[in-house]
Simulated scan of single mutants.
Amino acid sequence: MDLSIISRTGGPVLFWRGPDYDRLDLTGPVAANWVNKGVGLFGDYDLGPDFTLFVPMPAGLHWRELVAILSVLLADGRVVLGSATSESGVEDTAAPEGEFHAFVPLGHEGDERLAPAEEVFVYNPPALALSTPVDEDFIDVNSAIRAYPDFTPRRLKSTGTLIVGDQEIQWTESPADSGAGILVANSTPLPDEWATFLGHFLRGGETLLANGMDEVRIANLASSLGEVRGRLGTWTK
C-alpha cells in the first residue's frame, strides 16, 4: 500500500469533525499531499528505519495525527501509538525506549513522558489553524509542515512498523474490499481495527473521524454521507 490510489481519488476521502463544529473535508489528492509534506518535515529529522514517532493521542485521533502516522509508516519509520480503552479513550502508554520523537496536540507538550524526546512536534487542533503558539523548545507543526512540497522524491511503500500500546500491528493485512463504504470513528481506532482502517483509507475509502461529537449526531452525519461500512473505536452505549 502507498499513496498511488488516494492521490487519484476524486471527492472527499476524509471527513474530520472536531469540537465546537470544527470541520474539514480532504479529497484523496489533498490528503496525499499532506502526507508527502509530512515526509518532508520528518525527513529533516532522519526519517527512516531508526526514526520512532510517539503519538500518545490524549484527545483522540486528529486528522493531523493521521497524516503524521502515515508519513512515518510509508517512509519506513516506526510509530508508537497510545492504545484506546473503554474507560478513558486512551491509556497512559509509556514512551518508547531509546531515541524517539513525539507528536502531540497543543496543551499536552508538557507531558512528562515526552521529556526524553529528541524533538516534540506540537499541532494546533483547530482544523485550519496556520500556526501553533509554542516556544522555541517545540516544533510548530501547523506552520512548519506547510513549507514542504506536495510531492516527495522518496519511494513510499508500506514498510514501517506500527505499535499500538505494546502490540505490533500487521497494518498492511487488511481486507481486499476495504475501500467500500464509509468507516466511522467516534474515538481512536482500537488495536485490531488499524489494519482495516489504514487499508480502507489508502484504497480511497471514505472515513469519518469525529472528536467530541455525540453518538446521535455522528450517526446522523455518517448516514447522510452514504452507506456505513463499519464503526471504529469505543462508542457510548
Rank of each mutant, 00 (worst) to 15 (best):
S4T: 04
S7F: 03
R8L: 11
V13A: 00
L14E: 04
W16R: 06
G18S: 12
D25Q: 07
L26P: 02
L26D: 04
G28E: 05
A31Q: 09
N36V: 00
G38M: 12
G38T: 00
L41S: 01
D44P: 03
D44M: 12
Y45K: 15
L47A: 00
L47F: 12
T52G: 04
V55M: 14
V55F: 13
M57H: 15
G60D: 05
E65R: 10
L66P: 01
L66E: 03
L70K: 01
L74Y: 10
L74R: 07
L74V: 07
A75G: 11
R78F: 00
V79Y: 05
V80S: 04
V80Y: 00
S83W: 08
A84K: 01
D92A: 14
A94T: 09
G98R: 13
V104T: 02
G110Q: 14
L114C: 01
L114S: 03
A117C: 07
E118M: 10
V134S: 09
N142W: 11
S143P: 12
A144L: 06
D150I: 10
F151S: 08
F151T: 06
R154W: 01
L156C: 06
S158M: 08
I163A: 06
V164K: 06
V164N: 02
I169C: 07
E173M: 09
A180L: 12
I182K: 08
L183Q: 12
A185Y: 03
N186H: 12
D192R: 13
W194I: 04
A195M: 04
A195G: 05
T196G: 15
F201P: 04
L209A: 04
A210K: 01
E215S: 14
R217I: 09
E227F: 08
V228L: 13
V228W: 10
G230Q: 07
R231H: 14
L232P: 03
W235H: 12
